[in-house]
């Protein structure tokens, strides 16, 4: 397995959010401030890597028929760990992410990678796949947060950049989540089709 290619797939050509369209709920719901995005992105990165490694390690002894149930139990276990850790060490972030931390269990990125990658590949490959796919997800979250926080609230990580009377408040509302993600995916499709033409 080529690590460089995996990195490129995770970040660009097979980006979990912009190309595979997985994990859209959390992407739109929590990207209202950079700190939220970072907290969510790192949580998903850790859970994805850990569950990828475990699932890849036990893939030979899990019967085919109950594999989805097994995946969910493994993922839910890690989600619970991360949830408790967040509540203990960064209660502010845990509170603002709220119900979306336990909902990582049903985040389709993690189940999707388990089914399509780590169930078929070795432990080392799955480890890097988890890290790179997690990075791809985090990158999109941060891009969304950057746009929505800067233009919507006029701040970046809580520091005021744009004076209070100018920001477009609607971007921090749910509407902004849909619109910003729509435009980001459109930009991604445009860039991908451009690079295909170039070749």
């Amino acid at each position: 397995m080529n690590i460089g290619r995996q990195l490129k797939e995770g970040l660009i050509t097979q980006n979990p959010v912009l190309v595979q369209m997985l994990g859209l709920c959390s992407t739109m719901a929590i990207t209202t401030s950079i700190m939220n995005g970072l907290g969510m992105g790192v949580s998903v990165l850790i859970i994805l890597t850990a569950s990828n490694v475990v699932i890849s390690a036990i893939r030979k002894i899990v019967p085919d028929k109950i594999r989805i149930a097994m995946f969910i139990v493994v993922i839910a276990g890690f989600v619970t760990c991360v949830d408790l850790l967040l509540q203990a060490f960064v209660p502010a972030i845990a509170e603002s992410l709220g119900v979306f931390i336990p909902l990582i269990v049903v985040n389709c990125i993690i189940l999707g990678r388990a089914e399509s990658f780590s169930y078929k590949n070795g432990v080392a490959g799955s480890f890097f796949d988890g890290i790179f796919q997690g990075l791809g997800y985090t990158a999109v979250l941060l891009a969304m947060c950057f746009i929505r926080e800067l233009l919507g609230a006029g701040t970046l990580a809580g520091v005021r950049i744009i004076p209070e009377q100018f920001p477009v408040g609607v971007l921090t509302l749910p509407v902004g989540g849909f619109l910003v993600l729509g435009f980001l995916i459109a930009a991604m499709q445009w860039a991908l089709s451009k690079s295909k033409e170039g070749k």
Binding site: M21, V175, G177, G182, A187, Q189, S193
Partner: peptide, 22 residues
């Protein structure tokens, strides 16, 4: 525009509906 094909245009539509539901 062609880049909006599929999901992007659906998301923009959903965004406008969310605006209405607001």
């Amino acid at each position: 525009p062609k880049s909006f094909e599929g999901f992007p245009i659906a998301l923009v539509t959903a965004g406008l509906m969310a605006l209405a539901f607001m």
